[in-house]
């Protein structure tokens, strides 16, 4: 055993020394050094992301990454969101016919007793953590147009709260408190509706007022003079970016929670229900 440990130690040292020697003598080829200064593309984004002096170019958000995600390449993000929710629709379709409500009712006696879930320490801590997780996740989402973060990041963080309760208590603990597939579907649908309405808001305005406008437009452009206000009561909301982040937050939090609940139903129950449906 000690010979084996010594061999591992020696070979690790040889590996590190050989790699270091190879890198310093350029035996593995030359690596380009980072460019000094800012590249043309980066400076374009930095120059236009928040620049009220050029209102026809700017995204009116100091957070360039969010501006790129929801404005410069917003359509790309829309299709990413569509792919993600198509996956959730697939999960729902596979699990169709399973009534979570009846599952929760049939298990009423076996939940929340001393025997179910993790220890009382974990349960108490999870209860206290739930509102704190939601607070932090909402801050990540609603600050997305100002600091690093955004709707998807915030929504994923929010879904940790039901996940904790699900593991530490039981899936039935969530179901009996109304965190079941219907409300989560509603939350997800409300979020998606918000995204689509925001994406089409400027086009509708353009149609009504009779001027040119684009789908997914945020600030006014040269040939499309309408846009979503960047300021609300003198507070920077970056036009569509705030609305997209808020909607995506609700949609992702609802979507992830939905999948977590679906995945935690006992396999035997799901299989008996799915198979039963086929045979009859």
């Amino acid at each position: 055993m000690n010979v084996k440990k010594a061999l591992i130690l020696v070979s690790l040292i040889i590996l590190v020394l050989t790699l270091s020697a190879a890198f310093t003598s350029s035996a593995l080829g030359h690596y380009p050094l980072p460019l000094s200064g800012v590249r043309w593309l980066a400076s374009w984004y930095l120059y236009t992301t928040l620049n009220p002096q050029y209102p026809k170019f700017t995204a009116m958000s100091p957070e360039a990454v969010t501006a790129i995600v929801w404005d410069y390449r917003g359509l790309d993000t829309l299709f990413e969101t569509a792919v993600f929710f198509l996956a959730i629709v697939g999960a729902l379709a596979l699990m169709r016919g399973i009534s979570l409500k009846s599952l929760a009712e049939s298990n009423e006696t076996t939940t929340e007793g001393a025997g179910s879930g993790l220890s009382l320490i974990s349960k108490t801590a999870a209860k206290l953590l739930t509102p704190l997780i939601i607070a932090v996740s909402a801050s990540i989402a609603l600050h997305g147009h100002l600091t690093p973060g955004g709707g998807f990041q915030g929504g994923s963080a929010a879904a940790v709260a039901p996940l904790l309760l699900l593991v530490i208590f039981s899936v039935y603990f969530l179901l009996r408190r109304g965190i079941s597939e219907k409300p989560m579907l509603t939350l997800r649908t409300a979020g998606l509706l918000g995204i689509y309405l925001t994406a089409l808001a400027v086009v509708f305005t353009g149609l009504v007022t009779g001027v040119n406008a684009y789908v997914f437009q945020n600030q006014p452009k040269f040939d499309a003079p309408v846009g979503i206000p960047a300021y609300l009561f003198n507070t920077l909301v970056s036009g569509s970016l705030f609305l997209f982040n808020l909607s995506e937050y609700l949609a992702v939090a609802g979507g992830f929670t939905l999948v977590f609940i679906l995945l935690s139903i006992p396999e035997e129950l799901v299989m008996s229900l799915i198979r039963g449906e086929e045979h009859e």
């Binding site: 704190l132 939601i134 607070a135 801050s139 609603l142 600050h143 507070t235």
Partner: peptide
């Protein structure tokens, strides 16, 4: 509890953070 956590995590007491903090 949530409001204090929200404001501390956001690191700002601007009108925007106080308003969204109250709502959240």
């Amino acid at each position: 509890l949530v409001f204090v956590t929200y404001v501390i995590y956001s690191g700002s007491t601007s009108l925007y953070d106080l308003t969204t903090g109250v709502a959240v």
